[in-house]
Design a protein around this nucleic acid. Structure first.
Lengths: 144, 144
DNA sequence: GCAATGCCGAGTGAGTTAATCAAGTATCAA
DNA sequence: TTGATACTTGATTAACTCACTCGGCATTGC
């Protein structure tokens, strides 16, 4: 039930990029300084977000990173899935990356008590994170 | 955001013990067989649950484990905290094991956006797991 | 005493996390 | 064209965690 440093840093980096959305690009070291993140680690995080289509980047002098989509269209759920993988506490209840349990003594679906509770937990987590956008995030509160 | 095998096995073991609550004790190998759990691993799980005051045990021939408290008074939240640690996705929003973030650039409490969202996630998870008892678990559905 | 069972501590191999490093390639300015 | 700056890529690492595994000890019942 834990959020990795990678996701935490990723969210904090996106927060900075949200504040400058439409205004300027930010360089790795600027983001790193403002958010106290090791630069080289931040680099691979930004890169992953870029590959996932969330960021654009420019090389060379005056280079930097910027959000591609408006912050209101990016959810924390998306970001965490990119950096940490599925939100579900257990593979057999993931909607974006379902995986059958190897040795569960219960028949498929619905009869397994673990699967049942964890399904509701997954829905609760996704219900929050998939409706919480970078805009909400930057304001510090959900539009609810 | 993941449930460990340890917790999963722990919950499945407690499920068996719930079914036999007030009727009989169960030995490690019985639980292990019924739930397809490696015996030696199960052992340390049962031991942890015993140390936490959830189980009683008897050694020697005719030994075994049993629930101490009625299954309606044990919540999945308790169990998972014993085996996996705090439910909160990040230390600074845990209510049972709060830990200040080392290098968060935001002042204490309430101003950190990460802390804010993750707080609501924590509450959602705890809201489910701290009200879901072993009884509910054995029935496969919450009384809610 | 002896076998069955739980108790306990240490160890282990695979994998993950959180970085770090080194060698590129693109961009701009002088 | 040259050099400085900054993103890109891939490899490497140390520390840690996960999921077991093992060996020996303590207790109980026959």
């Amino acid at each position: 039930m834990k959020l990795s440093k990678k996701s935490e840093y990723g969210l904090r980096a996106l927060l900075e990029l949200t504040l400058f959305y439409g205004k300027a690009t930010l360089q790795r070291h600027q983001i790193a300084e403002r958010q106290h993140i090791p630069v080289e680690f931040l680099e691979q995080i930004l890169l992953a977000l870029k590959r996932a289509g969330l960021l654009s980047s420019r090389r060379g002098m005056k280079g930097g990173y910027a959000l591609i989509k408006p912050p209101g269209e990016i959810t924390l759920g998306q970001v965490i899935r990119i950096l940490d993988g599925p939100l579900a506490p257990i593979g057999c209840v993931s909607k974006t990356a379902y995986q059958k349990c190897a040795d569960c003594p219960y028949a498929e679906h619905a009869q397994c008590p673990v699967q049942h509770v964890m399904g509701t937990v997954r829905d609760a987590i996704a219900g929050i994170l998939d409706h919480y956008t970078l805009d909400d995030f930057a304001c510090g509160h959900h539009k609810g």
